[in-house]
Every structure is written in C-alpha cells, then in structure tokens.
Deep mutational scan, measured.
Amino acid sequence: MPVRRGHVAPQNTFLDTIIRKFEGQSRKFIIANARVENCAVIYCNDGFCELCGYSRAEVMQRPCTCDFLHGPRTQRRAAAQIAQALLGAEERKVEIAFYRKDGSCFLCLVDVVPVKNEDGAVIMFILNFEVVMEKDMVGSPAHDTNHRGPPTSWLAPGRAKTFRLKLPALLALTARESSVRSGGAGGAGAPGAVVVDVDLTPAAPSSESLALDEVTAMDNHVAGLGPAEERRALVGPGSPPRSAPGQLPSPRAHSLNPDASGSSCSLARTRSRESCASVRRASSADDIEAMRAGVLPPPPRHASTGAMHPLRSGLLNSTSDSDLVRYRTISKIPQITLNFVDLKGDPFLASPTSDREIIAPKIKERTHNVTEKVTQVLSLGADVLPEYKLQAPRIHRWTILHYSPFKAVWDWLILLLVIYTAVFTPYSAAFLLKETEEGPPATECGYACQPLAVVDLIVDIMFIVDILINFRTTYVNANEEVVSHPGRIAVHYFKGWFLIDMVAAIPFDLLI
C-alpha cells in the first residue's frame, strides 16, 4: 500500500533555474538572501570558489559584500557603492579590487542584480563577478574607477581610450546646418538635424578633445543650467548677453562664444560640459537660429522629431539603469545623424518603425519583477520565466494532490484497515475457520451469522477504491517536481505499489 509523501509542494524551481543557467555559462556568482541580516550568502558556485580561493563552506553565510576579499588596494568608495546597491532595488555595476585567499590582487567587475517577489519586494541578490585585470595590471588604489561605466561593446579594446569628441564640431553647429540641408533625401539625416562627426583615429590627448566618459557625465550638469543662461549661451556672438549692473557675465554663455574659444586653444572642462549641455537642449539648428531671432517656433511634425517616441515608452518600462547606459552608448555611435529632440514631445505622434532597438522591449506582467540581467542570462521568455513566489501546480481535472487534506485522511483510514487485516486475518484463519468446520452448517442466516465476513468484505472494497484513487494521485519525481499527468501517474504506480495493492485487495476469504 503506498505511503508516498512529498510535502515540499507547491515547489518553486526558480532558484534552481537560475543556478542551472548560470552554471551553463561558466559564470562566477553568488546568491544572497536579502531578508536576513547583512544579506548572507546562501549559494556560491564553483567558479566563484576558484576565483577567490575560498571553499564553499568558508563563503556560505558570510555577508555578500565580500568584505573578506578586501585588501589594501580595495577602494572604500567601491565598497560603499556595493553596500548601497544592496540597500536599493536597481541593478548596478561596480569595479573593485579584490584579494584572493593567497593574497593576489585582481580588479573585478561586480554586477549586483536584485530579484523581487510578486509584491515588488527584493528577496534575493545575485552578484556576478568578472575579472577585468590581474594584480600586475591593477593601478594605484588612489585612482577611482567606479565613477565610470563599463566599456562599450562596439569599441575595440585597444581603442576604448582613444575615443574623442571634438569640441569644434559642437561649436560649428550653425555652420554645418547648410551642408545638412543640402544633403536632402540623399543624406542619412532628416531636415533640421545636426550631424556630429566623431574622430576615432588614435591621437595624443589634446586640450581640444573630450573623453567619452566626460560626455556621459554632461547629463548630470544640465539641471544646474538655468533657462535664461541656456538661451544666452545659444544666442551666440551676435547678441551678447546682458548683465545687470554690478553683475558679471555668465561664464556659461561665454563658453560657447566662437570668438572667445578661437582665441585660446584650450577650454576648461567645466565650460566644455556646460556648452555641450546647452546645445543638447535645442532640438535642431533651426531652433538655434530661432533663439537668435527671439522667436522659438513649435517643433515640426516630421520623422526626426518622432524618433524618440518609442524611446520614451522603453525608458518607462525599463527595469534597470543598464538600459540608460545602453541608450547613452548607442546615442554616441560615430558617423550617424543625431536628432536633438526633447523627450517631452507630442504624445499624438505616431511611433516610426526603427531597425535598431535601443531599449529592451516591454516586459510582460509575469516578468515585471525580474531584472534585465536575470532575463538576459536565463534566456527565457515571458511565458517560461515565473515570478519568485509559491505557485500552485497546474493539475488535470479529477486529480488528487498527494499533500491535500483528503489524501491525508484517506491514508490514515487505509492504515487502520491494514492494521485490522494484519490482526484479524490470522485470527480468523486459526480459530474461526476451525469452529466453522466443526459446527453445523448455517446457510440460512447468511452474513448475519458471520459479522467478521462483512467487515472483511468492506475492507476489500476499500482497498479496491484505494487502488483507483492512487491512479489519480500526484507524486514527486526525482527532481522534486509534482507530477499531475494521468499517464505518468499510471506508469509510476504500475512500477511501484500496484502489484502489492492488488494482492492485498483480493478477497481470499470469499474465494475459499
């Protein structure tokens, strides 16, 4: 008679799926529990143990900040960024110097990925580790590398530091407007667009060049630039800015003055950032001319202004700041037409079709709590990747769950009947059967004279019903998954307890 339990259901295979997918890609990662103190490590794979030199037993239950890997060259700011990422709910990448158990130093890129439950609360953290440099290539500990984003994938490793954006290309926007319009339909740009040429040739750093990471940081200074100062900065030398009595002219307006920039070969870094931020506020060169004239017309309804409409929906549905990093990277690809469009465009503009998908598509409701890094690593669709929660398995109709209350009560009843059979069957065979043979035949009273025979008949009927119930009862397979398919249940029961239950259900007393 089957006594099969499996009270692990309803099970959740999400954690096993993450481990299996990460292991298949030869990654070095740990999984931490966000619900406990210090976000203790609950799993670390073999790749991480080989990377740091510690065994799994030495890593388990330690804080996922990996303070046991810190050393003299470990930056405090990087460690603080990892700790801050564990307090938030967004994906974050941090470069930090770690030390192995043998004392060797290596520069590592740590990717902190939160995993949320159905309520939107962070319950786990996945920390992925990628070695960037070994100890002989690690720089000085005073050099802070965590304020910069990861290198873009479309640049060669040897040319990542030679990417320079020439400031004269930004200063000569109005001069290039006529050349853009003359391109017409034969050019790649839309009317009114501004073409910015980027020099990728390796050259020595000069005062006129600005690194790509500095251009990325310009967006942080746009908020500090007032509207009046932006307007004066875009007017140009024809209309000098008016300053109040006793007030000095704005240095932001002076930063885009061609006369002032041409007199000296070098520009201050602050002026460069502010000038680029001011130019980015204009949607095209037409807006710059309109600002000089004193009238700013409404933005025209053409394809170039609607190019950012799908980007707005993608940004609203993005799951991490990696989408913004990807957008900034692609927006700086050289030799393309940049349409400086305000994100607050007309909502009635139709979304044009684009061959290049900048932001990841909208994630469906079932995966809105899973970050983009987890979705990318697992390579699963929205119909396959579940949320991290207890999910009731989908069972067929008329199927009994093996952990249901009805099955528990039924098993206790069958257990009592088995005990009765084990006690009274030998007793009936030894004593009652002998008395029946010696006594007179009682054929007239039937079952009324033999109450134990009636009980034995009921017990046999219950055993037959138990066999039928076992054909529709779920079970737990070797992978700790609840199986509810009727065919698989029948095959599993035939290979197991079916023969024993059938022999126990045969009414031998009635056959004798």
Rank of each mutant, 00 (worst) to 15 (best):
R4I: 14
V8H: 13
V8Y: 13
T17M: 07
I19Y: 01
R20A: 11
K21I: 10
K21P: 04
Q25S: 10
R27F: 09
F29N: 01
I30G: 01
I30M: 06
A34S: 13
A34H: 05
R35N: 08
A40S: 14
I42K: 01
N45E: 01
D46V: 05
F48W: 13
C49T: 11
E50W: 01
L51R: 01
L51D: 01
L51M: 14
L51P: 01
C52M: 09
G53Q: 06
A57S: 12
E58V: 04
V59Q: 01
M60G: 01
Q61H: 09
C64G: 14
F68Q: 01
G71M: 01
R73L: 09
Q75E: 15
R76Y: 11
A79S: 07
Q81T: 13
A83D: 10
A85G: 05
A85E: 01
L86Q: 01
A89S: 14
R92A: 13
K93F: 11
E95C: 07
F98P: 01
K101C: 01
G103Q: 07
G103P: 01
C105E: 14
C105F: 09
F106H: 01
C108A: 11
V115R: 02
K116V: 13
K116C: 10
K116Y: 10
D119L: 10
G120S: 07
A121I: 07
V122E: 06
I126K: 01
L127T: 01
L127Q: 01
L127W: 01
N128W: 06
F129Y: 07
V131I: 15
V132H: 06
K135T: 05
G139Y: 06
A142F: 15
D144T: 15
N146C: 15
N146E: 10
H147D: 05
R148T: 12
G149S: 07
G149A: 05
P151K: 15
P151N: 11
P151M: 10
S153W: 07
W154V: 06
P157S: 06
R159H: 08
A160F: 15
K161L: 03
T162R: 11
L165D: 10
K166V: 01
L167A: 15
P168I: 01
L171P: 13
E177H: 13
E177T: 07
S178T: 10
S179A: 13
S182Q: 14
G189H: 06
V195K: 10
V195F: 03
V196G: 01
V196E: 01
V198R: 02
V198H: 04
D199T: 01
L200P: 15
T201C: 08
A203W: 03
S206R: 07
S206C: 15
S207G: 12
E208W: 03
M218G: 10
N220L: 06
A223Y: 03
P227R: 05
G236L: 07
G238S: 08
G238E: 11
S243K: 03
A244I: 04
A244Q: 14
P245C: 07
G246M: 06
P249N: 10
P251A: 10
A253I: 08
H254G: 08
A260S: 07
A260G: 12
G262P: 08
G262R: 11
S266M: 14
L267F: 09
R269Q: 04
T270N: 14
S275M: 12
C276T: 11
A277N: 13
V279T: 07
A285G: 07
D287Y: 05
A290Y: 04
A293V: 08
V295L: 15
V295S: 12
P298V: 08
P299Q: 14
R301M: 07
A307M: 12
A307W: 14
L311K: 12
R312H: 07
N317C: 07
S320A: 11
S320N: 03
D323H: 14
L324R: 11
R326P: 11
Y327Q: 12
T329A: 13
K332T: 08
I333E: 14
Q335W: 07
Q335G: 14
T337D: 01
T337W: 14
N339H: 01
N339T: 03
V341R: 15
D342K: 07
D342I: 02
D342V: 01
G345N: 01
G345T: 14
G345Q: 08
P352W: 11
T353V: 14
S354W: 15
R356C: 12
A360G: 04
P361T: 12
K364T: 07
K364V: 13
E365V: 14
T367K: 07
T367R: 12
T367C: 03
V370Y: 11
T371V: 15
V374S: 01
Q376F: 02
V377T: 03
L380S: 04
G381T: 05
P386M: 02
